[in-house]
Structures are given as structure tokens and as C-alpha cells.
Computed example of a mutant assay.
Amino acid sequence: MILVTAANGNLGRLLVPKLLADGHAVRACVRSEESAGHLRALGVADVVVGDVSDPGVADRALDGVAKVFHVGPTLHPREREMGFTVVDAARAKGVRHFVFSSVLHAITTDLVQHEIKRDVEEHLLSSGLEFTILQPANYMLPLKLRPVFERDVFELSWSLDRRQSMVDLDDVTDVARLVLADPDAHAGATYELVGPGRYTAHELGEIISRVLGRPIEVREIDADTYLKAWVGDGDPREFTHQIRVLRSISARYSGHDFVGNPNVLTWLLGRPPTTFEEYVRKQHAAFTDQNRSSPG
């Protein structure tokens, strides 16, 4: 049995179908009945609903589990507590292997989210569990491309002149799939997962423009504007942790590049990782198909 936490999140939605296709028994842990419904529709019969920072929920989720894939839910204020509690429950339940999706350069502790993941890494290293730590670069996300496809504007909440490395979540979940299939081969490993290229926002905009066949605008926004786009009509006063995370990202990425090397990911995949241009083409095709099939 493999437990996947945050199973309806960015990584979980891609990883769970791959594990099911490989014939693994999968238990999904999510925080809402709505998310549980999405997972059951994918074919997951065993779903635990609850907050894994609650030891009772974690104990129930880990019961009978041999392997764990844990990722903290995006921008959640109890991400550290969730990580600690899942590690502790895994140790108590005799879990064979713990795979933790952390972040590239977790030692950069002026980034709030990185400090949290660094602390969870340390707790896992001290637990006595067999482990593999994945450290992905910035995710290539549909959320960042939708404004471009809809209104020809590419927005980032940090300096447009700083360079960043990125990674396709399909590639990250392909690595997780490999690790979970053969944990002994990856025990004790920490893998930096980085796609090819080191791009400024202007260079990313040029790639998107080439794919779309039309000029686009590249715009810098502040962290508060990005939060508003992320939470929609929610009250910003209820998202104090999230704004701290996003402001720390804006400050760090405006003062420093965030880059890595694709060699490890290439070796693990046994193929070249997905490029940003390939990702944009794939997402634009999906966006176009969706609009064609939408009523009206």
C-alpha cells in the first residue's frame, strides 16, 4: 500500500493515476470531501479525509502502509506540522520507505516555504526511516499560463530580469513513480529535479510568444496581486501565512537567480526532461481543445 498525501494537489493529481496504472494499491489523503470525490473518480477506493497535522488522522492514514509519498499542501500555514506528524506516524507504523517532495535549495531559509521544507527534511533525516528526498525547481504550472492564453499577458511576482530554472510536474511524478516502484535503489538519496534552461521572464515571454504566434506582454506584479488572483474572492486577512510566503518569494527572486542543473533529472528519467517550450505547447493544445469543446 502506498499513501499519497495532498493527493488532489498539483503533484497528487498526476502521480495517483500513474501509480494505479502500475498496479499499486493506493490510499489517498485529502482535506475535503470534494477532493475525495475527485480521487474516487480516478479509481481510488481508499481515501482518508482530514488534516494530517492531526495525529489521529495521520495514524489512520498510515495504518497498513508500506510506502509514503508526502508533499506539503501549497501555501498551507500548518505545512511544517503536517510534515512532522506524517513522519512520526510513519515511524510508529513501521513504514518501509518515505518519499518527501521538498524544494530545490531548501537551505535558502529567507524563503518561508523553503525553511518549512528544510525543517521537514531534517525531521525525516533524524527519524531512522528509509527515505528519498525530491527537490524540484519552480513548477511549470497551468495557472501561470492561463492569463497568457486568455489575454496575452505573462505575469511574474518578482524581477523580470532574474533567471529561474523550472521543471514539468509530469517529469517530477515520473521520478516519484520510479522511486516508489524500486525504493531500495533510491534509499538515502536526495535528488535535485531541474528541467533544462535558465530563463529570465523576458525569455520565457519570447518562448510563449513563439508558440502562440503573436506578441505578448510580460509584466511584473507584486505578491499581494498574485495572492488576490490565487484566492479569488477570499478575504486577504485570512491568508496571512500565504502572503508571507509570496512576499518572501518576491523579495528573494528579485535579488537572486534561482537556478539548478538538469543532469540528475535526465539520468533518472533516462530521457531529456521536458523543456519549457514543450510544456507551453502541450498546455496551449489542451487549452485550445477545452475551449473548442465548451458550450457556446
Rank of each mutant, 00 (worst) to 15 (best):
V49A: 05
D63K: 12
G232Q: 10
P183F: 07
D233C: 01
D257S: 05
E34D: 13
A201Q: 09
H38D: 03
V52Q: 04
G23F: 07
H76I: 02
D174T: 10
I208V: 15
L227N: 10
G83E: 06
S32F: 06
R80N: 05
S101C: 15
D168Y: 10
G234A: 13
H114A: 14
V47H: 05
G255I: 08
F276M: 13
E217K: 14
A89M: 08
A286Q: 13
A285K: 14
A201I: 02
S35M: 02
W230F: 15
V211N: 08
V112M: 08
V87A: 03
Y253P: 00
G37D: 12
V103I: 15
G260E: 06
D233A: 15
P142K: 08
S294Y: 12
F149Y: 09
A6S: 15
G270K: 04
L212C: 09
L62P: 01
K282N: 10
E192N: 12
V194F: 03
M140Y: 11
T275G: 11
V30L: 03
V112Q: 02
L145W: 05
G296C: 06
S254G: 04
E203V: 09
L269T: 05
K117A: 07
Q283D: 05
Q242A: 14
Q164N: 07
H202S: 10
P147M: 06
P147E: 07
R91K: 15
